[in-house]
Amino acid sequence: MTIPHWFLVAGLAIFTILTAGMLRKAVPAWRSYDPSRPKGKPVSGAIYSLTGAMLPWKKESARLYPASYIIGVLYHTGTFIAFAWVALLAFNIGLPEVLDSVSVLFLAVTAGCGVALLAKRIASSDLRYFSSPDDYFSNLLVTGWQGVTLLTLLNRDMLSALLVCTGVLLLYIPFGKLRHAIYLIPARVYLGLFYGRRGVWPAKDRQSWQA
């Protein structure tokens, strides 16, 4: 284990401890927060919230902005791919070379998506109005890290840099807006429980009340 390896391990450990602490405060309340008599099934609402409600044609935020939606999905997929590669590379596990090339191309696209989202934030006066340095930095951090992953795939000498970058990213996630990675699923579950209990979600496409 090199020093960058140790740095990554330390980063991961701190990230895990902080995340566990945050989730412990956020999650257990789901059982108790609403004592009203349900009209629908809270759990079905929560499941729908994580599945059907996320479909692009159900969500106006996706339907009205197809480009942003696709760019956003690609960008986040890039993050997952990059994390997978960090894990493989850290343990020096090789994959067929063709996957290297495919990943390089894919990460080039997803990092490009990151740049596009950053450019959009800079260009839009609406977004600038309620953006903070954290919003720009978080994008730069993730986009840059995807880029370093890409470079490492091209040249394994970059591995140390990638491990350090990943450590920095993991250390930053619990503090800035990247926290949404930790809170996204609880937020969707809470919203789903709310609408589920009230019989609003899962949304029915046609009249079902008469049955």
Binding site: A26, A62, S124, D126, F130, K177, H180, Y190
Partner: peptide, 19 residues
């Protein structure tokens, strides 16, 4: 508590909610 804490920490300022 859980519900408030969760929602306070989730917005990513994507702005797609405007419309």
């Amino acid at each position: 508590g859980g519900r408030l804490l969760t929602h306070l920490n989730s917005c990513v300022h994507c702005g797609l909610c405007g419309k």
